[in-house]
């Protein structure tokens, strides 16, 4: 390697130093603490004993029952499965709504485009907790929806749609919270889409369905995958929407972890579940990276 090359790589190293420090302090550091806590013995009133113990991980699958017998315990797998399904459902709904929105925005004049994109990002100005509380008012008994339905006579005065405290309410909350994260990446790949390809397809008598599935979808796939991951990952660990809108009747991963730290005082177990959640997410990101690479090679 010549001198210039060495200089360049050193410059790169120094230039990226702030990034490394931020990543190290705010991301890697806490993760190491978590990983460490997850392999320690729990103290009965919170905290840990400094003694190596893998029971945090064991407990995810095998646990003593009330009668102190070790048995296979599906409870946590059910909770993980439920979180997974809910996150998948929220992602699919976000995609179905977000894709046409992104397409519509990308077909507008530049000035209109900017306003629309600006509108999409507005919800981020307010805290997620407050926005989720607003949904309680919208979905709740005598809330905005019920009142308007009552006003136009779809439901009677004393009837209730019972929207709150259901899985539907959780899904609405999740989709609402994270849909901008779906729209923006898809929009950015739509922007890069060559309009001439669409015109060419139309000229060659492609049906609209074919146009969408053979031209637009494949070309915007990176955006779709990116958006799906941005929605899926936070949904998997979501805590606020299930808690406030779902009524806390069924534990999800996020609430299960919170329960271990705040109520059950079993920090190692809470940390172990958090590590499993992390492993799930890393796997998904890895798969995504592989798909992306293949996509680029094909392109």
């Amino acid at each position: 390697m010549n001198i210039q090359g060495e200089n360049k790589s050193r410059n790169n190293l120094i230039g990226l130093l702030p990034l490394w420090i931020v990543m190290g302090v705010f991301m890697i550091g806490p993760l190491i603490v978590m990983a460490f806590v997850s392999i320690m013995e729990s103290n009965s009133y919170g905290g840990i004993h400094l003694k190596f113990d893998l029971s945090g991980y064991r407990q995810i699958l095998f646990d003593t029952n009330l009668f102190d017998e070790m048995e296979f315990n599906p409870a946590y797998l059910i909770i993980i499965g439920r979180s997974f399904l809910l996150a998948v459902a929220a992602t699919i709904i976000s995609l179905i709504i977000g894709f046409p929105v992104a397409y519509y925005i990308s077909r507008q004049k530049d000035s209109v485009k900017n306003i629309l994109i600006f509108l999409v990002t507005i919800p981020f100005w307010t805290n997620l907790l407050i926005r989720t509380f607003a949904w309680i008012i919208i979905l709740g008994k005598d809330g905005v929806i019920e009142n308007s339905f009552g006003f136009i006579g779809i439901i009677g005065d004393d009837d209730s749609l019972n929207l709150m405290y259901t899985n539907t309410a959780i899904l609405i909350g999740l989709v609402y919270s994270y849909i901008p994260l779906m729209v923006l990446p898809i929009y950015s790949s739509m922007e890069k889409l060559d309009v001439r390809l669409i015109e060419a397809a139309s000229d060659l008598y492609s049906t609209r369905i074919n146009l969408i599935f053979k031209i637009i979808l494949p070309l915007t796939l990176p955006g779709i995958i990116g958006g799906s991951i941005l929605v899926f990952v936070p949904c998997l660990g979501a805590f606020i929407a299930p808690d406030l809108l779902g009524g806390g009747k069924k534990l999800l991963l996020g609430s299960l972890i919170q329960f271990q730290f705040a109520y059950a005082r079993n920090w190692p177990f809470g940390a172990a579940i958090a590590m499993v959640l992390l492993a799930l997410i890393v796997t998904i990101l890895y798969l995504n990276a592989r798909i992306n690479r293949r996509h680029e090679q094909n392109a």
Partner: peptide, 18 residues
């Protein structure tokens, strides 16, 4: 509660909420 009783409470609650 002591550790044993507390862990029983936690199990009861988690099972109820699973």
């Amino acid at each position: 509660c002591n550790k044993k009783a507390q862990s029983l409470i936690d199990k009861v609650w988690t099972k109820t909420m699973q």
